Computed example of a mutant assay.
Amino acid sequence: MTINIGETVFFGAARFCRIGAAIVLLGIAGCSSTNSSGPVPMADNAGPKDTGTFPNLNIPPKVANKQFTPAETNAKLAELKAAENGQGAKSGGGAASNQAALTDLAKKHGPQTLKQIEGKCDPALDPTCK
C-alpha cells in the first residue's frame, strides 16, 4: 500500500502541478526588479574614441625616456654582476657545503626545539631558562 501512495505522490499529476507552480513563482520573482531607472549612462569621455583614421604602424612610437647606449648597458650589467658575485661571496661557499651544514643543523635543531617547547630548557641554549 505504501508503494501505491508513493507512486501517486511522486509520479502522478500532482507532480506536474507542483512543477508548474514552482516555474510560475520563479518567473514572477525573476521579473520583479527594483531598478526602474533604466540603463546607467556612460560618461562622454569613457571608452575608445573613433578618430576616423587608422594608425600608421610605419612610424616608430615616441619613447618615454632616452635609451641606454651600449656602453651604459655594459656598465650597468657589470655593476649587477659585481653585486651578484658579492652576494655569493657572503654565503660562504657552494651548494655542497651549504647542504652539509643544513643537514647538520636539521639534526640538532629538532631536539633542541622540542626541549624548549616541552619546558626542558637548556641554559646553554636559552639564558633566560632556570
Rank of each mutant, 00 (worst) to 15 (best):
A124D: 14
D104K: 15
T69N: 06
K108H: 07
T103D: 15
T34Q: 14
Q67G: 03
N45T: 04
L26F: 01
G12C: 02
G47M: 05
Q112S: 11
N65S: 10
A82M: 10
L57E: 04
K90C: 12
T103P: 00
T69C: 04
K120H: 09
M1E: 12
N74H: 08
G30E: 01
P55M: 10
R18H: 00
E7Q: 10
T69L: 05
P127Q: 01
I5A: 04
G92T: 13
F16R: 07
I28P: 00
N74F: 08
G47V: 05
S91W: 13
F54S: 07
D122G: 14
R15V: 05
A82I: 09
A75V: 07
Q112W: 11
V63C: 02
N85Q: 14
P70Y: 03
L57P: 08
I117C: 01
Q87K: 14
I117W: 02
S32I: 04
V40S: 11
G92H: 12
C121H: 05
G6C: 04
G6L: 05
E7T: 10
D104G: 11
N35P: 01
G119C: 11
Q112L: 13
N85M: 13
S91L: 15
N35T: 09
N98S: 15
N65C: 08
D126M: 05
A21M: 01
E84V: 13
P111Q: 00
E118P: 00
N56M: 12
A124E: 14
A46N: 07
T69K: 08
T113N: 06
V40A: 13
P127R: 01
T103E: 15
R15W: 01
T53Q: 05
I117Y: 04
G47W: 06
I5R: 04
K108F: 06
G86C: 10
I28W: 00
D50C: 06
S97R: 07
K108R: 14
L26E: 00
V63D: 09
K62I: 11
T8K: 04
A101R: 14
Q116T: 00
T2Q: 06
N74A: 13
V24A: 02
G52V: 02
A64F: 11
A82V: 08
L114W: 05
I19G: 02
A96Q: 09
D104F: 14
N35L: 10
R15G: 03
K115C: 12
A100T: 15
A64G: 03
I23Q: 03
A100R: 13
G47C: 06
A46L: 12
F11C: 00
G119M: 12
E118T: 04
T34V: 15
N98V: 14
A71V: 12
V63F: 08
N35G: 03
C17I: 09
T2S: 07
